[in-house]
């Protein structure tokens, strides 16, 4: 069976590739579904709201369907059993993604959100690892972040130092790495997002997201796809007052990659 048969039949029409017919609509962004992925539909909606075309990808396939970028969404793939992301990294499609993403600045842009970030570290596309939150609870809250690096494929729409409010929700969100790796990440400007005000989970050096050296692979724990549509996002924005659940600070992540790809 091909990946197109994994319909998400109720609530919204995710088969509609785009809302837009502008130039960004020509950019095809794949969203991978693993068993246990939860925010795959949300990530597709985010791509669509940013003006791009969303393509559903299936973990067991060997074909990237000529997508221009890939999002590995949040969730509990394989139940997070063993270790978050530990089993998913062996999926056939992950081999394709790992290969396509490693090749310098023109390589495939890949974004890992939450469980996706954990999978990217397991796949060694990004360094470090996520362990259980310091306070041991699952935590869902609207989190203020600072964009530290606005030069990656996924952050071009922001300016360095800009703050954003993006929902955070996880159990294993504490980013850890040895000091040498942390120093390297800092030194090379590869810390992309940092927690502001309060560190929600004990992550080393308040790190919320990082990139690879080329900037095409980015992983972060908070969920930008939950801050893309007014009325269904957080109650606040770092950009000033917004309406009820009106925060859309995460949309820039998706428009960033679309703009980057159309040049």
């Amino acid at each position: 069976m091909t990946s197109t048969s994994i319909e998400t039949p109720l609530i919204g029409d995710l088969q509609a590739v785009t809302d837009d017919d502008g130039p960004l609509a020509t950019v095809r962004v794949g969203v991978v579904t693993f068993p246990g992925s939860l925010d795959d539909r949300d990530a597709m909606r985010a791509v669509r709201l940013a003006g791009g075309s969303a393509v559903q990808l299936w973990h067991g396939d060997h074909d990237l369907q000529e997508v221009d970028a890939v999002i590995i969404p949040g969730g509990f793939s394989y139940g997070d059993y063993l270790r978050a992301g530990a089993i998913s990294r062996f999926a056939p499609l992950m081999e394709q993604i790992t290969h396509a993403a490693s090749g310098g600045a023109n390589a495939l842009p890949v974004l890992g959100i939450c469980n996706g970030f954990q999978i990217l570290t397991e796949a060694h596309l990004l360094p470090g690892s996520m362990i259980k939150n310091e306070h041991l609870h699952f935590l869902c809250r609207d989190q203020r972040l600072r964009v530290e690096n606005a030069d990656t494929h996924w952050t071009g729409e922001y300016w360095a130092g800009e703050e954003v409010v993006i929902p955070l929700k996880n159990q294993d969100g504490q980013f850890v790495a040895d000091n040498r790796t942390l120093d390297e990440l800092e030194g090379e400007g590869r810390v992309v997002f940092r927690y502001v005000d309060e560190n929600p989970n004990g992550s080393r050096r308040n790190i919320a997201g990082i990139s690879n050296a080329a900037g095409n692979v980015v992983g972060l724990m908070p969920h930008p796809e939950h801050a893309v549509e007014a009325g269904f996002g957080p109650d606040s924005s770092a950009r000033g007052d917004v309406g009820l659940r009106g925060g859309t600070d995460g949309l820039g992540i998706f428009t960033s990659v679309l703009r980057k790809l159309v040049g």
């Binding site: 609530i11 539909r41 609870h137 699952f138 935590l139 929902p167 929700k169 796809e225 939950h226």
Partner: peptide, 15 residues
């Protein structure tokens, strides 16, 4: 209590 529950997933939560 409620901060230990995901209220965002599916992207359709209006309240």
């Amino acid at each position: 209590v409620t901060d230990q529950f995901d209220r965002y997933v599916q992207g359709n939560t209006a309240l």
